[in-house]
Design a binder for these strands. Structure first.
Lengths: 99, 99
DNA sequence: CCTATAGTTCGATTGTTGTCGAACTATTGG
DNA sequence: CCAATAGTTCGACAACAATCGAACTATAGG
């Protein structure tokens, strides 16, 4: 229930962002978030266990790619698209186009 | 002495490319290649041993980011910029702008 | 031919990351 | 209050990746 803290735009690190993106599971999450706009974890869990997904969301959150909004029992995730675009112009567009 | 084989444009995989870029040493190499145009390994070796550098060049080569041209005893490396742009438009521009 | 130079290959080690089950926490509904 | 739901945390393990020294290969120059 404690709201997560998301890293500030200015502290985002390109290496961390690239590392976060350099995983097929997380790329898939990113793709879905892009097309769905916002989604809770359950909607993104394929066949993988919840603990794995939790891990991937943590990586995406800590690198600054994803924002997690807590609403009751659910965690709604969304891409921090505007902020990423501001910090790394063109990066997400290129990645999203590639997947 | 055997010329390397570089992966074909069409087989380039976004995950491999992102993984290759998600390392500070390799990002540094990419940055230098971008500004220098072409360089042999020695010019890019900072304080790191040659075996480490050899490893990083291999990763960059196999992911399709770098082309290595052998000329005598030297290996001249360059970014496969046009091909990358064709396959993943905007990606390298975004990464290069970020570093 | 001998040596220097440029880089690779090998093998060991260490550190990092992904995966997953099990136990836990928090919220909502009955 | 009890149970269901949504997700986290913990711990273990396996797979992978970075690092580096040492030995190797190949070319060029003297």
């Amino acid at each position: 229930m404690p709201a997560y803290d998301h890293p500030d735009l200015t502290t985002l690190d390109i290496v961390s962002v690239l590392r976060a993106l350099a995983d097929p599971v997380r790329l898939d999450i990113v793709k879905r978030l892009h097309s769905m706009g916002e989604a809770n974890c359950a909607a993104l869990v394929g066949k993988r266990p919840k603990s794995s997904m939790s891990h991937h969301f943590q990586v995406l959150r800590e690198s600054g790619i994803v924002h997690t909004r807590i609403e009751g029992v659910q965690h709604h995730n969304s891409l921090r698209r505007q902020e990423l675009d501001e910090r790394f112009p063109g990066l997400m567009a290129a990645v999203l186009a590639a997947i």
